[in-house]
């Protein structure tokens, strides 16, 4: 038995000719184009939500390759220059013995982006094929991706801080590598993908399943 059955009389706003405002949650009749309270544009379902989400996810997948292949940091010191990729810097933290930092960087720059891409792809698949859809757990999954999304900016901030702090002419300098832009692109694309996914699509399928 599906777990959402115990709060059964759920009214779906679309069937009542009502639209809820994405900003202030106020309810307006379907005929209105803008919210009466906050004047933001109203859509019963976000236009082209799935297409936008899938397009941004594909962009993120493509950007994730250069983000991991190229170097993220280039250190030039007295002992010569050294270049590090994302995985390389995690291994460097492990060698130094700071396992907590290695874990933080690993979570923020590898688990979170890949997890987000996987979770959103799963939500898109579920929105297309109703058979596997589990509305309640899918909603929780969406909340998780929304909550943890910005934490993958850690790596970009670290590179920005280090390269602005360590600029000692001749002695030592740290410059950002090509991967930083690609990685920032991954984070931005996945955040936009999360925003453009309409959560109401999850519950539309539940209604469709019940009609059958």
């Amino acid at each position: 038995m599906p777990e959402y059955q115990h709060f059964s009389p759920v009214l779906i706003a679309k069937n009542q000719s009502i639209t809820s405002c994405p900003v202030c949650n106020g309810l307006s009749p379907n005929s209105e184009s803008h919210c009466a309270a906050c004047d933001s544009a109203l859509h019963s379902r976000m236009p082209a939500s799935l297409q936008r989400t899938i397009a941004l996810l594909i962009t993120a997948c493509f950007l994730y390759v250069p983000a991991n292949v190229f170097n993220i940091l280039r250190t030039e010191g007295v002992e010569g220059s050294m270049e590090k990729t994302i995985v390389g810097s995690i291994i460097m933290f492990m060698d130094q013995g700071s396992y907590v930092l290695a874990l933080i960087v690993f979570t923020a720059s590898i688990i979170v982006p890949t997890g987000k891409i996987a979770a959103l792809s799963w939500l898109c698949i579920c929105a297309i094929t109703p058979r596997w859809s589990q509305p309640l757990s899918n909603t929780r999954l969406y909340r998780l991706t929304e909550l943890f999304g910005r934490w993958s900016m850690i790596d970009v901030f670290v590179v920005a801080l280090l390269s602005s702090l360590v600029q000692l002419d001749g002695l030592m300098s740290i410059t950002p590598g090509a991967a930083v832009m690609a990685f920032a692109g991954v984070v931005i694309a996945t955040m936009l993908a999360t925003m453009s996914f309409d959560t109401r699509l999850i519950w539309d399928l539940w209604e469709k399943n019940n009609e059958r």
Binding site: I104, W151, I154, D155, F157, V158, L161, L162
Partner: peptide, 8 residues
Amino acid sequence: ISAFISMV
């Protein structure tokens, strides 16, 4: 958090 990491 990223300030902590770059400090280390």
